[in-house]
Design a protein around this nucleic acid. Structure first.
Length: 773
DNA sequence: CAGTGAGCGAGCTTCCGCTTGACTT
């Protein structure tokens, strides 16, 4: 009979620990937090010291009920949630919600799941750290106040159902401001010069080099080439320097997301899903962590594996220190649980992610790579400039044997082994050819999901458990979109020097291609501008860092959390009041021009349902006309002509049989309407120019999706239909699920009636009209 | 994942951070 109940956060962890503790212990999981503020209101008593009002949310009722039963059977309760602010609060909430007595309740912590660590923990219990709990309460209350008081201001001043928050609003701001920087960016165009030399001293060997100066103008480049014609090229210096490369630290949540994005193009949510699966199957350690710590056990395993695979001289064990802002280090870094497994069973994504984690972990305990970097300087007689050739030779590959270097914004991995031909100081070279090409300087790079996570982590904003959900939220709210952009073409001038002849030509160059990058939407820009204007300190990049310092003071018992929140709330509440009373409605309105027909103004702006075009003003006698913004246009870039075209909709094309065929732009893009049926118009067709013939073609190609009636009773009052999710019962305008085990052929009217009567009364949950999933 | 194709207007929307399994019309 078990007399001890241990409560941890996750079920996988519970399973492992139970094995270590023996039969006197039962280990259960709380599944994270079990209490929270009420979902539908502020739930903070502003007039009573910000007292939070907690409840057990619906989806946690079952867990809590189960835990209550387990508590009754146990003599001692061990609260073993994580050793950080949130974990301490979970322990406290458990104690409160389960009404645990102090005498029989013990708080234990361990940050390594090994038998020894857990036995040590059980031998050293402590009390719940109230200061740490209060720091969490302060964090929770502040986030609730910020989110639930700013969001309603947005509903009133911008658009219903919008949201703002300490984390998400800053994430959106980063995207909006980066896009603005890109828009303001003026590229600098210079001539970059390269050359290929013949090494006279050695046969058939050539050397590529780059000029150490970029020319501002074509004239300068031409003048340089003129001078090159009769010049002598001499090797002035050959410098060789040793260099070493060290492996990157073990994976944390954010670095795993970045590498999986760079190497496999995984969105952060995919990385987390796959990692979760690997964790549940016991193949890797916990995947939500900000720690780069490896247990001594893990280091030992890695060492053995390296010796077995590559030999002793490839081993160099290391311990890494976390220096991320706000890191709480409740877990180990992300690593394989069994280093001897180079690969695993599973689907392609699981295999790839696991192998990435395995390689990265192994590499951290391997020797540095030793390189030799060589720089050759080539003098051009009569000129100040010099050509430079660089090369690198790997003398000892070390960790590079398993883990190659990858660089952001570069798809290819760095080629480390670029050997240079043998060459000596004083050698004379023959210029075979040289090329000066106009080169545009690059604007700052747009964020993708993973680089945005990196930036947030650098700013100390968000936590490993929230990076992926935050990225999803700001896309769901339509503040930002993830998009590809095709390459554009531009002409660049190229000057070549070959066989004593200088030629100039213009060639076409691709540029500006983007893949899965984050762009702000109209709403994102308008909301960000509104927040910066009215809640400057909240969307400040340092706001989180600032309040984290105060939470730390609370955690150390140096500050009272109520007082901390009070000193934040007073000025904040003033901002909310002022914004509610005085701020103009933020519509992002832009005057496009005058409609030549009606002589009225044409605007692009945000409306209740998103971006739209408006002709005329609302205080004029005649009501304004509206049209929604096309999907591929924004307030910033739509032209007057494009806007006016929208008012030609719906366009009546003609008739098919006796029914009218028309086209229009709806909620889900352009469509053809034929009688009562609708067919989407694919992107390859243009709704403004589509012909009747093509529209009929689209109508005919649409598979008829007549609902198949499988059975019918009582004069069609009860019908069994075949739907998207399989067969279902339709009766009195409502639909009912069919139990899986029912055989349709044998279904009787009485059975149907029973299913209908038994089905719970459903609430009509209406989703916001514009929300598309 | 799919299916869908407003406009009246009452009532609702919303945060961050822990953690899994929801199971549709």
């Amino acid at each position: 009979m078990a007399k001890n109940l241990v409560i941890v956060e996750s079920p996988s962890k519970a399973k492992t620990i139970e094995r270590f503790l023996g039969k006197d212990f039962v280990v259960k999981a709380s599944m994270g937090h079990i209490r929270d503020l009420h979902k539908n209101d502020l739930s903070i008593d502003l007039d009573n010291n910000f007292e939070p009002q907690y409840e057990i949310p619906k989806d946690k009722h079952k867990v809590v009920e189960e835990l209550k039963k387990d508590v009754l059977k146990a003599d001692v309760i061990w609260l073993a949630s994580d050793e950080d602010r949130e974990g301490e609060a979970i322990a406290w909430h458990l104690k409160e919600a389960l009404r645990l007595k102090s005498e029989t309740t013990k708080r234990i912590v361990f940050n390594e799941i090994t038998r020894q660590a857990i036995i040590n923990a059980v031998g050293n219990p402590r009390d719940i750290d109230e200061n740490l709990v209060n720091a969490q309460q302060a964090r929770r209350v502040l986030d609730r106040i910020v989110g639930y008081q700013i969001s309603p201001v947005l509903w009133k001043k911008v658009k219903p159902a919008l949201s703002a928050g300490r984390v998400q609003s800053v994430a959106v701001r980063l995207i909006v401001e980066r896009e603005e920087e890109i828009k303001q960016f003026i590229p600098k165009v210079t001539y970059k010069t390269t050359a290929i030399f013949d090494i006279l001293a050695s046969e058939k060997q050539t050397l590529s080099a780059v000029l150490n100066r970029s020319f501002e103008s074509k004239d300068e480049a031409l003048a340089f080439f003129e001078a090159c014609k009769g010049a002598i090229f001499t090797v002035k210096a050959v410098e060789t320097k040793p260099a070493k490369l060290s492996p990157a630290p073990p994976f944390t949540t954010s670095t795993l997301q970045q590498e999986a994005s760079r190497k496999f193009g995984f969105p952060v949510s995919k990385t987390m899903q796959v990692a979760q699966k690997l964790y549940e199957e016991g193949k890797i350690t916990y995947m939500r962590t900000d720690s780069v710590n490896l247990s001594s056990f893990a280091i030992g395993m890695a060492k053995n594996e390296i010796i077995a695979l590559y030999g002793e001289n490839y081993v160099n064990t290391r311990n890494y220190k976390t220096n991320t802002k706000g890191a709480q280090e409740a877990h180990e870094s992300i690593r394989p649980t069994h280093m001897e497994n180079r690969t695993i069973e599973g689907d392609a994504s699981e295999k790839r992610l696991y192998e990435l984690i395995w390689k990265r972990t192994l590499a951290t305990q391997m020797a540095d790579a030793l390189l030799e970097r060589t720089t050759i300087n080539i003098e051009v007689s009569g000129r100040q400039e010099a050509f430079v050739a660089k090369g690198e030779v790997v003398l000892f590959d070390g960790y590079l044997k398993v883990y190659s270097v990858s660089v952001d914004s570069e798809d290819e991995e760095e080629d480390l082994d670029a050997r240079l031909p043998k060459i000596a100081q004083g050698d004379k070279l023959l210029l075979l050819s040289s090329k000066a090409q106009q080169t545009y300087s690059l604007h700052p790079a747009r964020y993708n999901e993973a680089t945005l996570v990196k930036k947030l982590e650098d700013l100390g904003i968000g936590r490993p458990s929230t990076y992926a959900p935050t990225i999803t939220t700001i896309q769901k709210r339509e503040y930002i979109v993830k998009e590809d952009r095709p390459a554009q073409k531009r002409e660049v001038n190229v000057i070549t020097l070959s066989k004593g002849e200088i030629k100039s030509a213009d060639i076409k160059e691709n540029y500006g291609t983007e893949k899965a990058k984050l762009f702000p939407t109209d709403i994102g820009v308008i909301v960000t501008n509104f927040l910066v204007a009215n809640f400057k300190d909240i969307v400040d990049y340092n706001f989180t860092a600032k309040v984290e310092k105060e939470f730390d003071s609370v955690a150390q018992g140096k500050k009272d959390w109520h007082k901390m929140i009070a000193s934040f709330y007073t000025p904040f509440n003033k901002e909310v009041t002022v914004a509610t009373k005085e701020a103009e409605k933020a519509t992002g309105e832009r005057l496009l021009g005058i409609d030549p027909e009606s002589k009225k103004s044409v605007y692009a702006r945000i409306g209740r349902y998103g971006a739209m075009i408006q002709i005329g003003d609302k205080d004029q006698e005649e009501k304004p006309r509206f049209a929604s913004m096309p999907k591929d246009r924004r307030i910033d870039d739509i032209t007057l002509a494009e806007a006016l075209k929208l008012f030609d909709m719906p366009r009546i094309l003609g008739k098919k049989d006796t029914e009218e065929v028309s086209v229009n732009i709806g909620r889900f893009g352009p469509y053809v309407k034929y009688g009562k049926s609708f067919v989407s118009i694919p992107k390859t067709d243009d709704v403004y120019t589509i012909t009747l013939a093509r529209a009929i073609e689209l109508i005919d190609s649409k598979p008829s999706k007549e609902k198949q009636v499988l059975k019918s009773f009582d004069n069609d009052k009860i019908q069994v239909l075949s739907g998207m999710y399989g067969p279902y019962i339709k009766s009195g305008g409502a639909n009912y699920r069919l139990p899986k085990e029912i055989v349709i052929e044998q279904l009787t009217m009485e059975q149907c009636q029973e299913i209908i009567n038994k089905s719970p009364k459903k609430k009509t949950t209406r989703k916001p009209v514009s929300a598309k999933k």
